[in-house]
Design a protein around this nucleic acid. Structure first.
Ligand code: FES
Ligand code: FES
Lengths: 149, 149
DNA sequence: ATAATTAAAGATATTTTTATCCTTAATTAA
DNA sequence: TTAATTAAGGATAAAAATATCTTTAATTAT
């Protein structure tokens, strides 16, 4: 559904929401291993995420790393999608027409019209923190286990 | 949501379902203009679609072109997605984990679990012919109008 | 048979996405 | 102040997606 970059970004920020705070930062090494993403590529994505204030912060040097503060954890999952330029994945026309609207509907529009709001709600209605909590409570995972448990 | 290739494929097959039959074939020129896709690239996609029997047929030479027969029009939109290798776009884990299942759910799984069946139904429950009919009846479009009407 | 038309097939080209590596800058600890 | 650590930034590289062009094969009309 989303690009690898966005998948990594989502996994990374959820991991940080669960495991970091301003007093406990996570290094790139731990982070990329935890979410099962290529280290250097993840570095690039983190640079993008830290560009946007309010989402992910970082500090260089010993003891440094990436972290989320309390406020950033309240941001919606959708805000991550926006930052990664993936709103269109949900909002654009399924057949690729210039705009998805009731004005010039494609043949799939009337059906997609019913699903799109649910997809938006799925991401807009969930905060990063909520996902992190589910991770803790419901035994969900962020990495790619080779064998199912 | 889908790749350009898949978007073109869907638009093409819907156009053919509406405008072609074994006695009235559509040339690449008309087809690519009608759906607003790059001509040569569309040719490649059509080759893929004609490889699968039952979906799109073609004939070379004067009067030749692409067409759909009555049976192929009854196929589901999902069958096109399968042919284009896009089932995973819907079925795979939103966070990119190896598998999307209740076994090793990611933090978004419980929410996506409610939407995924609707997305599948959206494509499995619609035949190509149904979309072509909507195109005719409900004034839907397949190209990219520069100005909304 | 020959010429014209059309898709199939193959070769390339371009762009975007994904990924790695190397150098620099910031921070901390000794 | 020096050395160590860590992310930032820049330069490439590799792979995949998108796109174009040229040649070939099939079919039809003359
Ligand atoms: S116009 Fe195509 S999905 Fe809305
Ligand atoms: S496991 Fe992630 S969406 Fe199902």
């Amino acid at each position: 559904m989303f690009s690898k970059s966005t998948e990594y970004a989502l996994r990374a920020i959820i991991y940080l929401a669960q495991n970091s705070d301003p007093d406990h930062k996570i290094g790139l090494e731990e982070l990329s291993k935890a979410i099962g993403s290529p280290r250097s590529f993840t570095a690039k994505i983190m640079q993008k995420l830290t560009k946007d204030q309010n989402l992910v912060s970082s500090v260089t040097g010993p003891g440094g790393g990436f972290y989320t503060n309390q406020e950033s954890k309240t941001r919606s999952v959708f805000s991550v999608l926006e930052l990664m330029g993936e709103e269109t994945t949900i909002t654009q026309c399924v057949l690729g027409l210039d705009q998805c609207s009731d004005q010039n509907p494609c043949p799939l529009h009337s059906t997609y019209k019913q699903i799109k709001p649910r997809l938006l709600e799925m991401f807009q209605g969930k905060s990063i923190q909520q996902l992190a909590k589910e991770l803790k409570n419901e035994k969900t995972v962020l990495n790619r286990p080779r064998k199912a448990s």
